[in-house]
Simulated scan of single mutants.
Amino acid sequence: MAEKLKMLMDIFGKITFGVLMAAAVFISVFEGFDAQISVKILWQILAVSAVCSVPVLMFDSDASKELSKKGMFARQLLYFIFVNIVVLGLGKLFEWFSFQNFSMVLFMEVLIIAVYAVVNIICYLSDRADAQSMNKKLLEMKKNKKE
């Protein structure tokens, strides 16, 4: 359980940073740099990030149960659809945009894709660095064992 909580907090931080950056870009584009915004947006960003992070708890952290490429693709696709529904749904609820304004919705979708991609790239690079570090330590252990 501690491993899942650590994973949840890690992804929550990455998603929150991405959503914060996307919100800054969105507000700058549609309201301008002098926009007056309420502190409510900070709580809304945290809420959206928290809801988008929850599915991580459903991912199996047991490395012995690897997914096939199709399984991984299906999970990523379902998660992407979930994120879209959450961001567009809560964005509408929080009145971040109007579905009548196509350019706002389109720009929001571009930002969703960008944040999703950046968070996934960061997670991939982090996981790859961890794997390389573990492999290096295993090689060192093998080397020391032979000596």
Rank of each mutant, 00 (worst) to 15 (best):
E66G: 11
V105S: 10
W43K: 03
M9P: 08
M1W: 06
Q76L: 15
E140N: 11
D130A: 13
F97V: 04
V19M: 05
F12G: 03
C52H: 01
L125I: 12
V54W: 01
L42S: 09
Q132V: 05
S126L: 00
F80R: 00
N101Y: 09
S98Q: 13
I37G: 01
V39M: 10
Q76C: 13
I37D: 08
D127F: 13
Y124D: 02
K143W: 08
I15A: 07
L88A: 04
A2I: 15
K143N: 13
S126F: 06
L77F: 14
I81E: 01
E140S: 12
A2P: 07
A74S: 06
S38W: 04
M1P: 04
M58L: 15
L138F: 14
L67F: 07
A22H: 02
A2N: 11
V29E: 00
I11Y: 15
L20F: 10
Y116V: 03
N135S: 15
K69P: 07
K6G: 12
Y79G: 14
G71E: 03
I122G: 00
L90A: 03
G13M: 04
S53Q: 09
E66L: 12
E31G: 00
F99M: 03
F102M: 02
L5N: 11
M1N: 07
F17K: 02
D34I: 01
F97G: 04
M1Q: 07
S61P: 05
A22E: 02
D60C: 10
M108I: 08
N84Y: 14
K136W: 12
E66V: 12
A131T: 08
A117H: 06
Q76H: 11
W43N: 03
L46A: 14
I15Q: 05
A117P: 05
F73E: 00
G71N: 07
I27Y: 00
